[in-house]
């Protein structure tokens, strides 16, 4: 592996300071399940790796009436182990997490890492998008927030500025009665990246119907289907989704199959979602 130096600052502020000093040559290390592979394959060549697990506050997982607050060092399995999350109204998210990689990988991999890695097929992103999740960002000029979808700007690209990191992801508690679901298509039932994945959210209180499709475009697609909340039209939703997705032909699947599977997943989620 390409050599680099390693530091484990003790606070978010210290991380920001070191990030800013090091300029573009530093990389943040959360679980490392993406980063270590990328360094090994020379996709990235950092001179400094900043382990963010030294900052206590980033390991915090909060779950209360207002929603979830998931620190950057919180591993994915903790979301499944914490009842307030796994039994809370975040079904699409926990479904996505339980289908992400293998159990052992999820003992290292973080939710924030999955988002900031900005892979088009990141499984947690469509659920986070329909759940209106926001990324809290710390940087040299203080903190700011961005909706998850706005954070991601392209394949492996984010809108984080120099010296910035995502400290946590906040998922607002959905309104009572909200239902959400997630489906993922892969080549084996074991761990595999998504050919396509879809999350759907239905919020009866606010009359919202939101759908997000991943693994097809550089950045997951969000569809606002509120207009059909009262009378959901599945085939119209399918058509809208297919209008927006631009999958590619690659080793994992063809364009044709990806599009068909997006349609199937949309239909299945609609069928599963409660009617009223």
């Amino acid at each position: 592996m390409q050599s680099f130096s390693y530091e484990k600052p003790g606070s978010t502020a210290a991380i920001v300071a070191r990030l800013a000093e090091a300029g573009g040559t530093a990389r943040l290390l959360a679980g490392g399940t993406d980063l270590i592979g990328q360094i090994r394959s020379r996709l990235v060549k950092p001179s400094l790796v900043l382990d963010l697990k030294g900052a206590r506050e980033l390991a915090l997982l909060g779950a209360d009436a207002s929603g979830l607050s998931i620190g950057a060092a919180v591993i994915l399995n903790r979301l499944l182990e914490e009842r307030a999350v796994s039994e809370g109204p975040y079904r699409a998210l926990t479904q996505a997490v339980s289908e992400l990689a293998s159990y052992n990988i999820r003992n290292r991999a973080t939710l924030v890492g999955n988002v900031t890695n900005a892979s088009p097929c990141a499984d947690s992103v469509p659920p986070l998008v329909v759940l209106d999740a926001r990324a809290e960002i710390a940087g040299p000029s203080g903190t700011r927030e961005l909706p998850v979808l706005e954070l991601i700007s392209g394949v492996r690209e984010t809108r984080l500025g120099p010296g910035e990191l995502v400290t946590r992801i906040r998922v607002p508690a959905p309104a009572p009665g909200t239902w959400s679901g997630f489906l993922k298509r892969k080549r084996v039932r074991g761990h595999d990246l998504a050919l396509a994945n879809v999350a759907l959210l239905r919020d009866p209180e606010r009359g919202r119907l939101r759908m997000s499709v991943g693994s097809c475009n550089p950045v997951p697609v969000l569809l606002d289907l509120d207009a059909m909340f009262a009378r959901p039209e599945v085939e119209r939703a399918v058509a809208l989704a297919l209008e927006r997705v631009r999958p590619i032909d690659d080793v994992r699947a063809s364009i044709e199959y990806r599009r068909e599977m997006v349609a199937v997943m949309v239909r299945r989620l609609f069928a599963e979602a409660p009617r009223s």
Binding site: R187, V188, R189, G190, D192, V251
Partner: peptide, 9 residues
Amino acid sequence: DFKIPTAKD
């Protein structure tokens, strides 16, 4: 991208 059966398959 080369998958073999896992315990789930």
